[in-house]
Write a protein that binds this DNA or RNA. Structure first.
Lengths: 120, 120
DNA sequence: GACATGTATCGACGGCTGTCAATATTGGAA
DNA sequence: TTCCAATATTGACAGCCGTCGATACATGTC
């Protein structure tokens, strides 16, 4: 798996600039809006949203790709594509063990999104 | 303003089906995933994300469209288009007073998104 | 009524995106 | 090494989306 594609480009929260990262606090600046919108765009597909939910709710906190492929009526390359989008958004992470790849969510990213919607 | 376009199609939380609406609880079913993904798709554009943030963080809780248009380097029809997308997603609501239209966020929708990212 | 202003809609265009079939890559087994 | 299974990548295509100019609608003013 290419490390170039798996990385998280920037920290999501940007805690240096503001003490209340909620949407209702200070208006998000264009730079951070771009970064956040990329994460929401990743969640803006029903298949990817279900993928994140399947991974997040799985006992043990990680899921094998083969299991994810089986949960949808889509081809394996399509699921692989969606997983890459989620990886690039920093929502999930993966680890290869032997032939299999296991995906888990990135808690920091999920938590950062949660604080976004807290009351201002 | 057409009421057909301003409405919220379905409740976001669907509390009847599940007691823990977080992503990490029960995996979201395809029907709800479609509805949630539509909301995230609405947030998946930097301009719309900034619009929501501008509205949510504005003192008084509402903003005139003319002020929103002035905050971007985009044409008025484009801002109007983005506001409609946010309206259709149930993220914002609007009220006309005289010549002006005032937008505010929909607290229930914002709160529902917040609970989505709470620990499972 | 006529006019001006704020807002929404329409139609078009370029770019992005979800999906697939085909193929490449990786890692274990024989 | 050779083969196979699991996963990732590539290339292509249709459909969606953000943006604009032009225009329509709504409301207040004269």
């Amino acid at each position: 798996m290419s490390t170039k594609l798996a990385g998280q480009p920037l920290p999501l929260l940007d805690t240096a600039s503001c003490c209340r990262p909620s949407l209702a606090g200070t208006p998000v600046d264009p730079r951070r809006a771009e970064r956040l919108a990329a994460v929401f765009r990743a969640l803006g597909d029903p298949v990817r949203l279900r993928l994140v939910s399947l991974i997040a709710s799985h006992p043990g906190g990680e899921v094998c790709v083969c299991e994810l492929v089986g949960a949808f009526d889509l081809t394996q390359p399509t699921i692989s594509h969606h997983l890459r989008v989620l990886r690039q958004a920093g929502l999930v992470d993966c680890e290869r063990r032997g032939t299999w790849a296991y995906y888990r969510t990135v808690p920091d990213t999920i938590a950062a999104l949660g604080t976004l919607f807290e009351a201002g």
